[in-house]
């Protein structure tokens, strides 16, 4: 464990808590993409299959349980409890255009052609594009609530911090995982446009409103 990875995990944790607070306080899921949350649930389920077979640390297990638990709770809030406020018309990204290529790529490019490893690789590739339905929804509605912007900033920062973690681990431990790094770079790049808007607008107290 290193400070970059710890900050990354905390940023990820903060993003999930911000999202839950937004939903619970406003009792609304307006502006939130249920499809992205379903993709994140798929990512966590696929990545944490080893939750019961390999024990890394208490921290690792607790975080995995928390991430899986909260993402399914988020889906429950979107599609059941606050279903009336879910904006399905604007949440229209075709996720099959993500899942099929990512699934194919996981078969072709992986560290080891073994079931658990291919599923792990699938979760890494899927995570890098899982935010697209959410970003697409914001571009369609033309705006994002400030709290949703904070959620996205924390979520984007988490993988950016993981990139720092991988640089650190390369020099400190000689650890290098090309698949995770490449997917992490793609994932972070997808947020750059949003980071720019966040820093130039939200940090000055303005709302993010894209030219619709």
């Amino acid at each position: 464990m290193n400070i970059f990875r710890l900050c990354g995990d905390m940023s990820h944790l903060a993003a999930i808590i911000i999202l839950l607070l937004k939903m619970w306080k406003t009792r609304s899921v307006a502006g939130i993409s249920g499809k992205s949350q379903i993709l994140f649930a798929t990512v966590f389920t696929a990545r944490y299959l080893d939750l019961f077979t390999s024990f890394i640390s208490i921290y690792n297990t607790c975080m995995k349980v928390f991430f899986i638990g909260t993402v399914y709770f988020t889906i429950y809030l979107i599609y059941m409890k606050f279903k009336a406020t879910y904006d399905s018309n604007h949440d229209s990204f075709r996720v099959e255009f993500l899942i099929v290529p990512v699934g194919g790529l996981a078969f072709l490019v992986n560290h080891e052609f073994a079931p658990l490893e291919i599923i792990w690789t699938f979760s890494i590739y899927l995570e890098s594009v899982a935010i697209l339905p959410q970003l697409f929804m914001i571009s369609k509605t033309g705006e994002a609530e400030t709290i949703t912007s904070h959620y996205l900033f924390a979520l984007g920062s988490y993988r950016a911090l993981y990139l720092c973690n991988w640089i650190y681990r390369y020099y400190a431990e000689g650890f290098f995982d090309l698949i995770a790094v490449v997917a992490g770079v793609v994932q972070t790049i997808l947020y750059c446009d949003f980071f720019y808007l966040y820093i130039t607008k939200v940090m000055k107290g303005k709302k993010i409103s894209l030219p619709a």
Partner: peptide
Amino acid sequence: PVIEEGHDEL
């Protein structure tokens, strides 16, 4: 590249 058995990151 060094690949550990399994993955220790979240």
